[in-house]
Simulated assay, not measured.
Amino acid sequence: MMLALLFFAGTAAAAAPADDTLARGARDGAAPAWSIAVATPAGWTRDCCLYARAIGVDAVLYQGEWSGKPQRVMVLNVWPQKLPTMAAEIEADHKRYLQLDPAGKVSSFAVRHRTMSCEATIYQGSDHIDDVLVFCDPGKASGIRLSWSMTVNDNDPQRRALLGDFMQVVVASRYHRDHEAHAPAHAAGPRGG
């Protein structure tokens, strides 16, 4: 699985339309208003305001009908920087995961993104459900960090295609400092809670 993700992380191309905003957040303390834009892969539905809001995240992408299950859903979370570095955010997330699933396996690798520092973590659960989580840091001046995550059953026959679409979204995501006033951003942490 990691080799497939490495391949997609290094080769996904970002064809970016002028404005493909998926989520927005208002100024929050020192963090200026922001927006995250990304082109949506064919066959995926964008949602920032119905299902995403209901589960407390900034945006979701899903295929077909909304099932309410976490599998096969790309989740965008944006939060104000609290820990001093992205590495500290990742370490805290690893610790939380292993407390919940001591038999789970954790592996990480850098993701090549043109404008942000990003790192992927693969959580292989003892329940045979895997989570792929990519933390990105748009820089200290942004005042925020963001993550993309997706849960996939380890025996899902569409796993490779799903992960390919996921990594395409991750590397195509664009942070913008937003100068307009918008509704407050969700305060969810990197794993949705």
Rank of each mutant, 00 (worst) to 15 (best):
F109P: 08
P157A: 11
D93F: 06
A15M: 01
I90C: 03
L50T: 15
W148P: 03
A12Q: 10
I129P: 05
A54F: 05
R112G: 08
Q99H: 14
A42C: 02
A59F: 07
V73E: 14
V106S: 13
H182N: 07
P138E: 10
R72I: 02
W34F: 08
V134M: 01
A42D: 15
S107A: 13
L76F: 09
G139N: 07
S35E: 09
L98R: 15
N155L: 08
A52I: 02
S149T: 10
G139A: 04
M167H: 09
L83W: 14
S173C: 03
C136M: 07
T21K: 03
A161T: 14
A183W: 14
A161F: 04
Y51C: 01
P41G: 08
R145T: 01
G192F: 07
V132W: 06
F7V: 02
L5V: 08
L22Y: 04
S117F: 04
R27T: 14
G56N: 14
G192N: 12
E91F: 03
P84D: 12
L50K: 13
R112F: 04
A15K: 08
Y97L: 07
D178G: 00
T115M: 01
G10F: 07
R160L: 08
A88S: 14
P41Y: 07
W79R: 03
A4M: 09
D130Y: 10
S117L: 02
L100T: 15
A4K: 14
A39V: 05
A30M: 06
L83N: 12
S126L: 01
A16P: 03
L61S: 09
R191V: 08
M74A: 13
D127K: 13
Q168L: 05
H182I: 00
W148M: 01
V152T: 13
L133F: 13
A52W: 05
A42I: 06
F109Y: 10
R53C: 00
Y123V: 00
P17V: 00
N77L: 00
K140H: 11
G143Y: 06
K95Y: 12
